[in-house]
């Protein structure tokens, strides 16, 4: 059991924010992450940019391009995360694709996570069946691999939920990440079967951008995850996005916390 992650969900719904490391620069992304935390985020996902993010919509794809162009690497992402860790006790997880982790070396990667105080890893291209090769190494270092459940998971929910670590990432909709005006999936029934089997909290992500959506989704789950709605502010405001990110995050956090 990861104490920092479970604490984020204690006595309240969690607001989880995502930002890409190094987008648009190392320093600006540090400021943005701190603004997100100061606005009330209970957990932060730090994206390690990848050249070919197949689960991302255009907003986060473009963030990856900006960050890689600005020189972000896995090692620099560790430096950034360490700097954030020195300022906060909230749980921090990395979100990236399997290849950067695999190439870095599972043992080296998770050892480094443990050393600097990263609590978990989300890899959208590492489904339940392929988790084993990384999982035992992650566990040995005390790092939770966060599993995802999608609208299409159906009878897979049981196995995924039962073995879940940290928290469960409930994908709200079909398709890739990105802002959606409406979420049509029957999340109530998905959450019902998740709750039947899971020993960890579950947060809903993909498509959430407004305080109203954050409130509505929080009512169904243990928390909400917001990415594109924050990342698009970086696209809009460049190196000076921190204030806007803080403002938007505050609204989302209040929305999530209000139920």
């Amino acid at each position: 059991m990861n104490n920092r992650i479970s604490k984020a969900f204690e006595n309240k719904k969690a607001f989880i924010g995502f930002l890409t490391a190094g987008d648009p620069t190392f320093d600006a992304s540090y400021n943005n992450i701190m603004a997100l935390i100061n606005a009330g985020a209970d957990l932060v996902e730090i994206g390690i940019p990848f050249s070919d993010p197949i689960a991302e919509g255009p907003v986060i794809q473009e963030a990856d391009v900006r960050a890689l162009k600005a020189g972000m690497t896995t090692d620099r992402a560790f430096e950034l995360a360490a700097k954030v860790r020195s300022q906060t006790d909230i749980p921090l997880v990395f979100m990236t694709y399997l290849n950067p982790v695999f190439k870095y070396g599972y043992d080296r990667f998770f050892a480094k996570c443990a050393e600097i105080g990263i609590d978990g890893l989300i890899c959208p291209d590492m489904p339940f069946e392929e988790k084993a090769e990384a999982d035992s190494i992650a566990k040995a270092h005390g790092i939770s691999i966060i599993s995802m459940i999608a609208p299409t998971s159906e009878e897979r929910i049981k196995a995924i939920a039962e073995s879940a670590e940290g928290f469960l990432y409930i994908v709200s909709s079909l398709g890739v990440t990105g802002v959606r005006s409406e979420i049509k999936t029957d999340l109530a029934s998905i959450m019902e079967s998740v709750k039947k089997y899971a020993h960890v909290p579950a947060a809903i992500g993909f498509g959430i951008s407004t305080p109203e959506q954050a409130k509505k989704m929080s009512a169904l789950a243990d928390g909400v995850i917001v990415g594109s709605a924050l990342v698009r502010l970086v696209a809009q405001y460049g190196e000076n996005a921190a204030a806007e990110i803080g403002k938007t995050a505050k609204g989302l956090a209040d929305g999530a916390h209000s139920c």
Binding site: P124, D125, P127, F128, E130, S147, A150, T152, R156
Partner: peptide, 12 residues
């Protein structure tokens, strides 16, 4: 080999 794809596609 293997099946390293998003959960959304696994059942399909």
């Amino acid at each position: 080999g293997g099946q390293y794809i998003p959960e959304t596609l696994m059942n399909e």
